[in-house]
């Protein structure tokens, strides 16, 4: 074991899978010569050359569509979207093409590709560069969605995503990039399965289900709530949004009797609403108090710092929601 950054973990997963599988290639803006705007693909051009690390013009619709085509032809493209918000300029290729291909061809074709990149708020990038997209993607069957919160999970989930036979969206929160964590030595081949949650903090009073950067915020909130109020949170890291590990969530709720689902995408019709609804459908008898979700208020993230802080479902808002539920 050693400590690495989140960025390094992703970079290693890309490199090792490219070494292992000739079919894997990278495509995106400024990923080769520059090494990625956030340096995630650093040094990969040197190692694998322009045949497998492809710098594109700013043509998301075109290169996303070409990745779909290359995947249909048997390769394993990994597409970087510089900001996840830009999925909207190539949405047809993702949702109408990649996600539906296997189904509408009666299983004759499949699209084994990964779309990865950073998302989320916290750095004042404003309305068009701060969205969190997991809830929208969850509306489309045929594409899987994962969002790790630690370097270990990032590497393990990315390897799983690359080896998956389906399109997988791999979400990296921009606030996670320089966080550090334990990683097995480079030669250890491990994966984290898609669709499996993990308890990141055991507790007895309330289950907080989340993923990605809000998980770190939730862990901090949990320590403060423990110290200040004696409230003991159990924190379930969903890790995958599609498929959703409801079994993991309900197993935890069986211990605590309370559920709060937290995410940075919209609260309204978001993945938290889905988790709450499924809890009521599948095991309402586990709940001692009404289950809740906490997401983004109906607005896009503004540049102005106090306004952005007001809206993000981070520590302050998480603590307030928990306190209300524990009243």
């Amino acid at each position: 074991m050693r400590k690495t950054t989140f960025i390094q973990a992703i970079n290693e997963a890309l490199r090792e899978e490219m070494q292992r599988d000739e079919r894997v290639f990278l495509i995106g803006e400024d990923i080769g010569h520059y090494g990625g705007l956030f340096r995630v693909t650093r040094n990969l051009l040197d190692e694998f050359g322009e045949r497998r690390v492809i710098d594109t013009p700013i043509s998301e619709q075109g290169f996303m569509g070409m990745a779909v085509g290359a995947a249909m032809a048997g390769l394993r493209p990994i597409v970087e979207l510089m900001y996840m918000d830009f999925y909207l300029v190539c949405a047809d290729q993702i949702f109408n093409q990649a996600a539906k291909m296997h189904y509408m061809t009666g299983g004759l074709l499949n699209v084994p590709m990964v779309i990865r990149g950073q998302q989320g708020g916290g750095k004042g990038y404003g309305s068009q560069h701060s969205s969190s997209v997991e809830s929208t993607f969850a509306q489309f069957p045929g594409i899987k969605v994962v969002a790790p919160s630690t370097p270990y999970d990032a590497k393990g989930l990315l390897v799983s995503a690359i080896r998956d036979e389906n399109p997988v969206l791999f979400l990296e929160h921009k606030m996670l990039y320089f966080t550090r964590g334990e990683l097995p030595d480079a030669e250890v081949d491990y994966t984290v399965p898609i669709g499996k949650s993990e308890v990141k903090r055991a507790g007895k009073d309330l289950t907080l289900a989340t993923f990605g950067y809000t998980l770190l915020q939730a862990l901090e909130a949990a320590e403060e709530l423990q110290a200040e109020q004696g409230i003991d949170l159990e924190i379930v890291d969903l890790r995958s949004i599609t498929p959703l590990d409801m079994e993991g969530v309900l197993t935890s709720v069986a211990r605590t009797g309370r559920l709060l689902a937290v995410h940075e995408s919209q609260s309204n019709a978001g993945i938290g609403a889905e988790i709450v609804a499924r809890t009521y459908e599948e095991a309402p008898y586990l709940l001692k108090a009404p289950a809740r979700r906490l997401g983004m208020a109906p607005a896009s993230l503004p540049v102005s710092k106090p306004l952005e802080e007001e809206l993000l479902p981070w520590k302050r808002n998480i603590k307030a929601a928990v306190l209300e539920m524990m009243k």
């Binding site: 004042g124 404003g126 309305s127 560069h129 503004p302 540049v303 102005s304 306004l307």
Partner: peptide, 8 residues
């Protein structure tokens, strides 16, 4: 009102 910032 500071919502758009430099890019807008």
């Amino acid at each position: 009102k500071g919502k758009g910032g430099s890019m807008h």
